[in-house]
Computed example of a mutant assay.
Amino acid sequence: MSSPPSSAASTTVPAAKTPLRPAVGGALWIGYALACTGATLFATKAIIVKLAYAQGVDAETLLAVRMILSLPVYLAIGLHTLLPSRRGPFDHANGRLILRAALVGALGYWLSSYLDFKGLELISAQFERLILFTYPFFVMLFGALFFRQPIKLKSLAAFTISYGGLLLLFLRDFSLLGEDAALGAGFVMGAGICFALYQLFAKASILQMGPRLFTCVAMSAASVVVIAQFLLTHPVGRLALTPHIWLLGVALAIGGTILPSFFMNAALHRISAQANSMIGTLSPVITILLAVAILAEPLTGLDMLAAVLVIVGVAVATLADRR
C-alpha cells in the first residue's frame, strides 16, 4: 500500500490543493510488483466461486457473503485513514471526491462483479478468465477515445501477442461449450467493459485521495449496493449457509477481494491504467494452473502455448510502459 507524502513535502504546498503524484523511476517496479500480486490474488476468485457454486449457492447470495465479510474491514481501515492525526494530504477528500469514488466503486466492484459472477454460473473458470481479461483492450481503446491517452506501438504489439494466446483458448472452449456459452460469455464481456471503465475513472480519484482511502470508499459503496441487491431479491434466511460455504466466503473476501483491491489500487497510484491492466492478463494463466490443480480441469499443449504468449506480451508491455 502506498504511504502519503512526507510532512516536509506538504509544508511547501498546501495539502488541500496538491493531489498525490504517481511514482517515477525505480519506484515503477514497485507498481509492477503490486499489479502482479493483485492479478495473482484475483485469479483465485473464479476458483473459489466455482467451488461455492458446486455447493448450490447462487450469484447474488455469494456476492452478499463476500461483501458482508469485506465491509467491516474497509470501514475500519477507511475510518482509521480519516483520523485527524493521520489525515495529512487527505484533508482535501471532500464530499464530491468521496461521492465520485463511491460511484466508481459501484461500477467496478458491484456491476462488474455481478456480471462476472452471473457468467461463472454458465461457463468454466478458465473460459471466464480469458473473456474477462479482454478488459485491457477496452482500457486502451476507451483511454484513447475519451481520456486522450496515447496508444504506443509496442503496447499494440504486446496486445497482439497476449491476445493471440487468449484467442487460441477462446476458440477451443467456445466450440466445446453448450448453448449457455454465448450468454455466459456476454455477461463476462460486460464485466470486462465495466472494469476497464473503472480503471480509467479510478486513476484520477486515486491520485487525489490516495489508494488506501479510495479503496475503502469504493469498496464500502459497492458492498452496500451488493447487500441491498441481495435483500431486495432474496429472503434474509438464505444467508443460513453451511460452515463450508462461509469458509469459502472468508477466502473469497480476504484473498479474492480485500488484499487484491488494495494491491491493484496501490499499483494504479504508481503506473498507468494500461500497464496495470496489461499485467493483469497474467491472471488467466494463473487461473488455468489453479483450475488444473484444484478443479481437476485438463491442461493441454494449447494451454501451455497460450500461457507463454500471454507472459511474453506482458513483458513487452511492461518494458514499453517503463520507458
Rank of each mutant, 00 (worst) to 15 (best):
G88S: 09
D303V: 07
G95R: 10
L305E: 05
T215A: 09
A46Y: 10
P72I: 07
A222G: 11
A306P: 14
L107G: 00
F127W: 08
G88E: 11
R87H: 01
L62V: 08
F201I: 11
A101R: 08
A144G: 03
I279G: 01
I30K: 11
G184R: 01
G210P: 03
S113P: 02
S223R: 12
M219P: 08
L248D: 05
A93T: 10
V236K: 08
V308T: 11
V312W: 08
P298A: 08
I227V: 10
A125L: 07
L145Q: 04
M1C: 04
S175M: 15
R270H: 13
G184L: 03
A54K: 15
F187R: 03
G237W: 06
A35D: 00
P89V: 09
E60F: 02
L241G: 00
M1Q: 07
R86G: 04
F187A: 03
M304C: 15
G25W: 04
M1W: 08
V225M: 06
L168R: 12
G95A: 11
S155W: 03
I258Y: 10
A240Q: 14
T318F: 01
V139R: 00
P260L: 06
T215K: 13
P136D: 04
A144N: 12
P19I: 10
A191G: 07
N94I: 02
V188G: 00
L69D: 11
P298R: 07
A8L: 10
D180R: 01
S205N: 14
I227L: 07
E121L: 08
A306N: 13
L282Q: 02
V292G: 11
I271S: 05
P284K: 12
A228H: 00
Q208H: 15
A275H: 01
W29G: 05
I123K: 09
L130T: 15
P4V: 05
L289C: 05
L169Q: 03
S277Q: 00
P22I: 00
F230G: 10
I311C: 06
A185H: 11
C194A: 14
S272C: 04
F146K: 05
A307P: 13
N276H: 03
R87V: 06
V316W: 07
A157S: 10
T215R: 07
L63C: 00
F127V: 08
A221E: 02
